[in-house]
Computed example of a mutant assay.
Amino acid sequence: MKWETVNLDIMENGVAILTFNRPEFLNSVNWQFCQDVPAACRVVSSRDDIKVLIITGAGAGWSSGGDIATLFGMQDPVDAKETYDFSTGIVNAIYELEKPVIAAVNGAVAGASLASCMACDLIVASEKARFAFSFIQIGFCPDSGTSYFLTQKLGYHKAAEILWFGKMLKADEAYQLGLVNQVVSPENLLEETIKMAEKLAKAPLLAIGLDKKLLRAALKNDFYQQAELEAMYQVLTWSSEDFKEGCAAFQEKRAPVFKGR
């Protein structure tokens, strides 16, 4: 499936690959991009045959953030606010997917696209990946939720250091900080990410969807609130077909076949 700025390839193994497809502009975000990514995410959400989504970029970069022509074309503060709200819709579309989302970062990530990347559940980075938190270098603040994700993942002090000094993180630095899950060679990026996605596609996706909610709630809940939420979700999974299948497979010493319900 193709739009003007993105492609969506749906594989037979339950995995779909969303490719940002403006390679001549390092997949920067323009008005059409802001419409195409949410449209593709709606397709992913609506199709039962898509279990896991991989997001990658065509060409040399994952996404360089806001398109310069779009940013320079803003006329006044009201226009700027509308533009930033519109671009945040990309992050919302990715973050709100109940299915697992894996970023396969093939090159540079910068600007608002840092938020899109961190909104994914898992991040696999090529050794060539670079995470450019360079807002401060042009007198900018981060946007689209970048400060939220960065602080949640790394804590206040490290987030402040990265933003205030406009750091460019190499793939291995991002891994050491816990910003990415895995670093692989460029030629193996998609293959390794697909392997990870295939494992998740065979998993009990009802439980994974609830795990996403639990992990996000844990960022703000205290122990008692989180334990209560876990108990409620355990009741839901206990009554699911997947739980019954998992128990039966364990007793019968075979691999379970989960259906996500």
Results as ranks from 00 to 15, higher is better:
255 A>P: 09
152 Q>K: 06
47 R>P: 03
235 V>A: 09
26 L>K: 01
215 L>N: 15
10 I>G: 04
146 T>N: 12
221 N>R: 11
116 S>E: 15
144 S>T: 06
74 M>Y: 06
253 K>G: 10
205 L>S: 05
140 F>V: 10
191 E>A: 14
117 C>N: 11
251 Q>H: 13
149 F>M: 05
59 G>A: 04
224 Y>W: 13
235 V>G: 03
257 V>E: 14
218 A>D: 13
41 C>R: 01
185 S>I: 08
179 L>A: 02
125 A>E: 11
199 K>R: 15
71 L>W: 06
175 Y>A: 04
126 S>H: 15
62 W>S: 07
98 E>D: 11
84 Y>Q: 07
172 D>H: 02
104 A>K: 07
123 I>C: 08
118 M>V: 12
150 L>K: 13
120 C>E: 11
228 E>N: 13
113 S>P: 06
6 V>G: 01
49 D>V: 06
64 S>T: 06
223 F>D: 12
179 L>I: 07
122 L>T: 15
210 L>A: 11
22 R>G: 03
208 I>W: 02
80 A>M: 13
37 V>D: 00
149 F>H: 10
160 A>Q: 07
23 P>S: 05
187 E>A: 12
112 A>L: 09
36 D>I: 08
10 I>N: 01
239 S>Y: 07
31 W>D: 14
42 R>T: 00
166 G>I: 15
27 N>S: 12
28 S>R: 04
252 E>N: 12
115 A>P: 09
112 A>Q: 10
42 R>H: 05
154 L>C: 05
167 K>N: 14
22 R>T: 12
241 E>W: 05
226 Q>Y: 15
104 A>S: 14
228 E>T: 15
11 M>P: 01
246 G>S: 06
156 Y>T: 13
84 Y>P: 00
198 E>N: 13
92 N>T: 13
43 V>W: 02
149 F>T: 01
193 T>L: 01
203 A>T: 10
8 L>E: 00
109 V>D: 01
32 Q>K: 12
19 T>F: 04
104 A>D: 08
33 F>R: 02
52 V>H: 07
234 Q>S: 14
176 Q>V: 02
221 N>D: 15
26 L>R: 01
8 L>V: 04
